[in-house]
């Protein structure tokens, strides 16, 4: 998997460092080119963490505004995308806190999962896959935000533990602990039979 910070932005002939320097000097176009290379992934990250398109769009705009205003503080000790994602995680936490929203817990229909897992006819495979997708999405949505963030950064985004921990703002050991606990909860919610059939 190719990580966002390790490739040049689409169509960019200029290095990321050059774009950062121009943005820090006040060049908004350079900032847009710099951040625009990560816009789709940023939005996807926010959507996965917030599970609400309108809210994800609102938070994405806030993240980019804050990143633009804070670009002067970016000293390049981390990759730009790591810095941007960290702002995004802060904004997600702020947004969730503001709304005092707790994930709505909807129990996974384990009976349906087991029935789907037991189905062997080929036409059932798509339905089975859709059910597994729904179950995994629901299980992730039911996790507390720090646990969901750990799975999204590590397992969905494919970031290294070091990068994910840096973005989440915790030590690697603490991040791993969150990740492992989160996976155990998701596994428990879905059930081994459905996972092994998937």
């Amino acid at each position: 998997m190719q990580l966002p910070g390790r490739r040049p932005g689409p169509g960019s002939r200029e290095t990321e460092a050059g774009l950062v320097a121009r943005a820090q000097a006040g060049d908004m176009d350079a900032f847009e080119q710099l951040a625009g290379a990560y816009a789709d992934r940023l939005f996807a990250l926010l959507l996965r963490l917030l599970d609400d398109r309108a809210e994800a769009e609102d938070v994405a705009q806030e993240v980019l505004l804050r990143a633009w205003r804070g670009i002067g503080r970016f000293q390049g000790r981390s990759q730009f995308f790591t810095w941007l994602y960290r702002i995004a995680i802060n904004e997600v936490n702020r947004s969730l806190e503001k709304k005092s929203r707790r994930p709505i817990s909807v129990p996974v229909d384990t009976e349906a999962l087991q029935l789907a897992a037991a189905a062997s006819a080929e036409p059932a495979q798509q339905a089975e896959r859709a059910e597994l997708r729904r179950a995994i999405s629901k299980a992730l949505a039911d996790l507390p935000p720090p646990a969901r963030t750990a799975i999204v950064l590590r397992d969905v985004e494919g970031l290294s533990t070091q990068e994910a921990a840096e973005i989440a703002g915790v030590a690697e050991a603490a991040f791993k602990s969150r990740l492992h606990q989160a996976r155990l909860k998701v596994r428990a919610a879905i059930g081994d039979e459905a996972l092994l059939a998937g």
């Binding site: 908004m28 625009g36 939005f43 505004l65 990143a67 205003r69 804070g70 503080r73």
Partner: peptide, 22 residues
């Protein structure tokens, strides 16, 4: 429109008052 807020509110430049970056 993902850059809209930045374009309208951030026209003052990257060093304006709301600081935000970690």
């Amino acid at each position: 429109g993902i850059f809209d807020r930045m374009r309208s509110a951030g026209a003052g430049g990257p060093h304006s008052d709301t600081p935000p970056a970690p």
